[in-house]
Design a binder for these strands. Sequence first.
DNA 1: AACTCCAGCAACCGCGTTGTC
DNA 2: GGACAACGCGGTTGCTGGAGT
Length: 338
Amino acid sequence: MSLSLIITEPENSFSFPFFSFKKQNKDISTKTHRPRERDREMGRAPCCDKENVKRGPWSPEEDAKLKDYIEKQGTGGNWIALPHKAGLRRCGKSCRLRWLNYLRPNIRHGDFTEEEDKIIYSLYASIGSRWSVIAAHLQGRTDNDIKNYWNTKLKKKLIATMAPPSHHHLATATSSSPSPSHYNMINSLLPYNPSVSTNQLLTPHQGMMMTMMGQQQQQLLYQEDMGSLVNSPNSNKLIMSHQEDSQEQSTNNGIMLLSDVRSGSSTTSTVTRVKMEHLDHQHHHHHHEEDERSMSSVVMEDYGMEEIKQLISSSCTSSNNSLWFDENKTEDKFMLYY
DNA sequence: AACTCCAGCAACCGCGTTGTC
DNA sequence: GGACAACGCGGTTGCTGGAGT
């Protein structure tokens, strides 16, 4: 059995469910204190006069002014003009952020529930770090809050759960036997759950692979981890390789996930091929093999290529309470299924 | 008590997208 | 359809307070 997946990868960045990296192709010196002259040269006017606006934490007085003004006058559809009208020495962007993330009614902070965690996991697996979309599905939560929560707590929680006891990285060999919660976590992560029954659980690494495949932009984390995957002495072996030539897509038997669900505008310069192969381990037969197979082989071996394609691309409802998206929908019309 | 470290989070920044003229 | 303005998003920064030494 051989399964190949081709995943598009945007030119300037890549992300993994838990990590993201950006190529540093910017002039770092302009990153901070970017001169306003340069903004003008580059065709971008500053959003406000930075020298005459207050920055940093908001005082209760400022909060009251802003809240009072918006409650009485509304935003007027113009955040730039709002601070002046409200008598605030603040940038319009700052006012907008303060209102949206802190002052507007029915905002909830802290104490995320298990249910919210699940929703975040599932949505993240499906659509990545599109916090505003995720926030739209969590009553009273802001994108900033969710982002912070993910970066400071949820990601660590997930990593801790995923990490096999004897290994220090996410994507390491599958020889150890993870805990049941391990599997539960993985399966709550899966963006798609088409016809795999709840007892057909993936190993953490296979689940991780599936999660990766659901991402809009995909890549791998560490070369080191790749090495451990490739060298894993298990019956199911993951082989990853990069290729610059997307021409090969057409000749590959694999599944293509052209899945920039964000806007469809992403350019693709390189392609990462993810290949899952079942290898004949004639020299690696040992008494654990059956156990390992029963644990980890349910995922791909039982499906033909066309079935795998269907699994990934089909829009089927979930058999449990995990969530998934219809990626054909536009951003505003994302459908959430339970 | 003084200091360091670090998690948490509010706020900022840059840039892509959208709206308007 | 091009230029410009404004919005909105996601990544990043940096402040703060609590824990540890």
